[in-house]
């Protein structure tokens, strides 16, 4: 149980660093006088979004047989990872800003 928890934490935390949602949080917390409200708002939004993601994942798990799931998620995570490390147009937009 623990390795799954730690691997999820590290994957999501590293993927989120520099992610557009975090950049939005930085700008919002810098400009507003209510950093606590920004923190609560952003955390609640992210937790709700991941709840939706988890529920959707759970639903799919009931439909699709397990080994296909592992295959799909392997390719899916591979794709996300490649998109993160591969310098493509959308990354350049952020480096210009």
């Amino acid at each position: 149980m623990l390795p799954l928890l730690i691997s999820t934490f590290t994957t999501i935390f590293l993927a989120e660093l520099g992610d557009k949602t975090q950049i939005a949080t930085v700008s919002l917390s810098g400009t507003s006088k209510r950093p606590l409200a920004v923190f609560i708002g952003s955390s609640a939004a992210l937790v709700l979004a991941s709840l939706i993601g988890v529920i959707a994942g759970g639903a799919i798990a009931r439909v699709v047989p397990d080994n296909y799931l592992k295959l799909i998620s392997a390719f899916g995570l591979l794709g996300i990872g490649l998109r993160l490390i591969w310098p493509n147009k959308s990354n350049e937009v952020i480096s210009e800003v």
């Binding site: 993927a15 557009k20 988890v54 994942g57 998620s73």
Partner: peptide, 19 residues
């Protein structure tokens, strides 16, 4: 967002959505 999709995939293949 990619983090949400990653969460979806992780929860689907792990069979332990709560964790």
């Amino acid at each position: 967002d990619k983090t949400q999709i990653a969460t979806l995939l992780l929860s689907a293949q792990s069979g332990k959505p709560l964790v």
